[in-house]
Design a protein around this nucleic acid. Structure first.
Lengths: 141, 141
DNA sequence: CTACTTCCTGTAGCCACTACAGGAGCAAGC
DNA sequence: GCTTGCTCCTGTAGTGGCTACAGGAAGTAG
C-alpha cells in the first residue's frame, strides 16, 4: 500500500488532482491508515494512471468514467469504446483544422507588420469593418 | 446610439459577454439612457468587434487589453504587436503539433479495435504498464 | 525531543464565459 | 390607459479540470 505521494509519483497524477478525482467520484475512495491517510493499492494506482493517459489523449472526464465502468466488466464492449474514440478523433481532427486556419490568419496578419514602424497594419485590419468574421469559435480553446 | 441588443448584433459579441467585458474592464463603461439602459456609440461597438476578432484568433483577454491600449495611441508600436502575434502564432503551431501526435495515438489505438468483440485492446493498452507516457499535456485544451 | 516533510480538510481562484432568477423599462396594439 | 410581450437590468452561480493556498495533524530522521 502506498501513500498519496507515492501514488502520485507512480501514476503521474498530481496529488491535488488525485483528491479532486476522489471528490468527483472519478475514482473510488481508497482505504485509510490509522492516522487518516489515504492508502492506495497497485490496482488503484493503475486506475489513476489509466485516467491520466486518457486525459493526455484529451478525453473528457465524463467519457473516462464510462471507460472505467467498461473496464470493470469482464467483457469489454469494444464497439462502444471504438465509437467513442473515433468520435473524439473526429473532434481532434476538427480542432486541428480550425487551428490551421487560425495559423494562416495570424500569419498573414503578422507578416504585414514591419518592425518598428508606427500605425500597425494588423491592428488596423482588426479594427476595420470588412475583415474576416468567418473564423470558427472554439477553435483554440 | 444603440442598446445592448443592437450592439451585440453588430459586434457579434453575446449580450452577457458584453456585460462581462464591462465588469472586467476590458471595454469602458458605456453611457446610460434615462431608464438605466446601456447605450453604445459606433466606436464602442467597433471596439467590441475588435475584441471578438482577437478572441476568434485565440488571443487571451490580457493580450487584447494590451492591444486596445496600443490602438488608443496615435502611433501604434508595430514591433510590440508583431512580437505578441508571433508568440501567439508559435503557441498555435505547438498546439497543432501536439494535436497531430494525439490524433496519431488515438488512431493507432482505435484501429486495433474490432467492432463487436469483447476484451477491447484499446482499454487494455491504456491499462498496461509500459504504454506511451510521452504525450504532452495541455495538448488538447 | 526537535525539525522537517508529508499529509489532512476546506475553500477560493483560474479562464472566459454562460445561465439563470426576479424584477423593471419600453413599444405596439386595442 | 392598459395589456402583452419583448428587451433590458442586477446579482449570483455554474461550467471543466484542475491548482493554490491556509491552518493544522501525522509521521520520520537524527
Amino acid at each position: 500500500m502506498f501513500t498519496i505521494g507515492k501514488a502520485s509519483e507512480q501514476s503521474g497524477v498530481n496529488i491535488e488532482t488525485i483528491r479532486y478525482y476522489e471528490r468527483e467520484g472519478v475514482v473510488p475512495k481508497p482505504g485509510r491508515s490509522a492516522g487518516g491517510r489515504r492508502l492506495y493499492s497497485s490496482d488503484e494506482i493503475a486506475k489513476l494512471r489509466f485516467v491520466r493517459r486518457c486525459r493526455d489523449l484529451g478525453f473528457p472526464i465524463s467519457i473516462i468514467q464510462t471507460f472505467l465502468s467498461l473496464t470493470a466488466q469482464s467483457d469489454r464492449p469494444c464497439g462502444e469504446v471504438k465509437a467513442m474514440a473515433e468520435n473524439h478523433l473526429g473532434e481532434v481532427a476538427a480542432k486541428i483544422e480550425n487551428l490551421m486556419r487560425l495559423r494562416e490568419a495570424l500569419f498573414s496578419l503578422s507578416k504585414n507588420c514591419d518592425d518598428g514602424t508606427a500605425a500597425c497594419p494588423m491592428l488596423d485590419a482588426l479594427m476595420k469593418d470588412g475583415f474576416g468574421d468567418g473564423l470558427d469559435k472554439q477553435s483554440s480553446r
